[in-house]
Nucleic acid binder design. Structure first.
Length: 286
DNA sequence: CCCCTATCCTGAGGGC
DNA sequence: TGCCCTCAGGATAGGG
């Protein structure tokens, strides 16, 4: 469900409710876990105090004292809420982390594509190391490395944006949005794009994600924040889920295509391909 | 290696 | 009302 801005919204919502809380009991739904060892591992958390919450890309983690961290991926439909223990349980509640103050953190995930993993700090760091720079925290010195990797790739730029090992936190909504802002054709290959154009794309990614964070995320289908409220960013999108609606720049109707099984939305006039542009067969970088 | 496809799941919505 | 189909903010093993 969530991309970087949505995960960060949730992290900010729940962190003040969790820091310094003592975990009194862990409850898990066995259906959610593949092995019994994973379930029993969570018992180690009982009695531990929560130290802080962190995030990189779409990966969220809870650090406790000692060497235990919980790594959380929300997948397509995962949600996190801090509620009173006595509050009625929603269907598909898979994890409850109860605290001494009579509240509990609940993880709800109908499709079960999310994950909830107890790990050491070392293991957490190696998971973070698999991810590329995050637009909320990257430095300009990261750009050269990111752009170099993109220009080595034969894949479409849309698919590259979804690759978490290159840029962390961009998902299907903000990939389309960033390409629109940077005026890049989604099927253009990474190796066909100039450094100048890719710099614009990185800036555009940062811009659309910052806007989304300011509006507490995009509620397209099921996403809600840590309080169970929908985010306001849907009305600030340019192209995502706007098939056959006029482009804000040129009024051309927005197109929808499928790339690697996932929908991409773009303006075929504002985001023209290299092939369409150079009819003589020469391949100037755009 | 690199890249694409199928797959893991439930639920909402449309057509008939 | 129900049945069947498609689609959905993600990640990844495995095959070509």
């Amino acid at each position: 469900m969530p991309e970087g801005p949505e995960i960060e919204t949730i992290r900010r919502d729940i962190e003040p409710l969790l820091v310094s809380q003592v975990i009194s009991k862990i409850w898990v739904n066995p259906v959610f876990f593949k092995t019994k060892a994973q379930i029993t591992a969570f018992k180690k958390l009982e009695g531990k105090t929560i130290h802080s919450l962190g995030r990189h890309g779409k990966l969220l983690w809870i650090d406790t004292a000692y060497d235990q961290s919980v790594l959380i991926r929300l997948g397509m439909t995962g949600r996190l809420h801090v509620q009173e223990k006595k509050q009625i349980l929603e269907k598909h509640t898979h994890i409850r982390i109860e605290f001494e103050n009579q509240k509990e953190l609940r993880f709800i995930d109908p499709r079960r594509f999310g994950s909830f993993i107890l790990s050491t700090h070392n293991n957490k760091n190696s998971e973070i190391a698999r991810l590329g720079p995050d637009p909320f925290s990257w430095k300009e010195s990261d750009f050269k490395n990111i752009i170099g990797r993109i220009q080595k790739s034969n894949r479409s730029i849309k698919n590259i944006l979804l690759d978490q090992s290159i840029i962390a936190g961009v998902g299907n909504i903000y990939a389309s949005e960033a390409l629109f802002v940077a005026k890049i054709f989604p099927e253009q290959k990474g190796c066909e794009l100039s450094t100048k154009k890719l710099t614009q794309l990185l800036m555009a990614s940062q811009k659309v994600m910052n806007t989304a964070l300011q509006h507490r995320g995009t509620s397209f289908m099921s996403y809600v924040d840590g309080w169970g409220e929908r985010g306001d960013n849907f009305s600030h999108l340019f192209v995502f889920a706007k098939t056959n609606q006029p482009c804000i720049n040129c009024q051309t109707l927005i197109s929808k295509i499928t790339q690697s099984g996932r929908s991409t939305f773009y303006c075929k006039r504002c985001q023209q391909s290299l092939v369409n542009r150079t009819r003589n067969g020469t391949s100037d970088m755009i």
